[in-house]
């Protein structure tokens, strides 16, 4: 077990916007074929963390290793190749609104020229079914969907190419509880069946325990606790306890965010 190389290894990751310090030395390991749940207050830098790994935000300092390879210090083409194997569900969906739903879902497959357009259309229908949407939804444009449906289409797009690492930024926010459970199941399925590695950000503790093997909490730019997801509710850490039980009193005081 100790010999295993983490799928994702982050050390000392720092990022400030102006004089606002968002990430202040993040250390995180995600083992292959497991799923990691990241929790933390609103504005604590969870989305920024994922975007740093994806290369969408340039961190100020630190190490990000994917499969033991430092993506911040390798050749640009290699870094792009390493990152191309990560599927991402953006917090707001980020669907391409000039394209129909099916083309959104199959975008990655078409871009990698793995299949032609007709096969892509069929494949999109299958993936949409996995997230509980009829194939006919594929003909609509993203603007014609409800918020929850957009989220599911975005999820379908993130997993369509069966990437070996998947990032989910609040996959179940905005979904009804039953659909939330279905989506959680789908994420677990991707990890178990496809052997993918998942990192999910969530504010939903039920969902966190369903998805996560491991869990970590980010607070004030640092990981203040990490452990098995099953221990989230009784971690013994006062901050985590307050957060997971949603108490108003505790070590975390609501501060005005800058």
């Amino acid at each position: 077990m100790t010999a295993a190389v983490p799928k994702l290894r982050i050390r000392g990751l720092r990022k400030s916007f102006g004089d606002k310090r968002v990430l202040d030395g993040i250390d995180l390991d995600v083992m292959p074929r497991t799923s990691m749940v990241v929790i933390g207050g609103s504005g604590s830098g969870k989305s920024v963390l994922l975007k740093c790994v994806l290369g969408l935000i340039q961190p100020d300092a630190g190490v990000i290793e994917i499969d033991g390879q430092d993506v911040l210090r390798m050749r640009r083409a290699d870094a792009e190749a390493a990152r191309a194997r990560i599927g991402m569900l953006f917090q707001n969906g980020a669907l391409f609104d000039s394209l129909p739903v099916w083309e959104n879902v199959a975008f990655g497959l078409l871009a990698q020229r793995r299949i032609d357009r007709r096969a892509a259309r069929e494949r999109a229908g299958e993936i949409l079914a996995q997230v509980g949407l009829a194939a006919s939804v594929g003909e609509l444009s993203p603007a014609e969907l409800s918020g929850g449906m957009q989220k599911r289409v975005a999820l379908a797009r993130a997993i369509a190419a069966q990437p070996d690492m998947m990032f989910f930024d609040e996959p179940t926010t905005g979904l009804d509880p039953i659909m939330g459970a279905v989506i959680d199941g789908l994420i677990v399925d991707c990890v178990k069946r496809l052997g993918s590695t998942a990192v999910a950000i969530t504010h939903d503790m039920a969902s966190a325990r369903r998805i996560g093997d491991a869990a970590a909490m980010i607070h004030r730019g640092k990981i203040i606790w990490s452990g098995p997801a099953s221990a989230l509710m009784d971690s013994g850490n006062p901050e985590v306890d307050q957060f997971t039980h949603g108490r108003r009193e505790g070590p975390i005081q609501m501060e005005l965010r800058r």
Binding site: L54, L56, R83, A84, M88, F90, N92, A94, A111, R157
Partner: peptide, 15 residues
């Protein structure tokens, strides 16, 4: 596309 993360999404989809 920029402010709704669609441009970021493009680069995560090998484009």
């Amino acid at each position: 596309m920029r402010v709704t993360d669609q441009i970021d999404a493009l680069s995560t989809l090998s484009t």
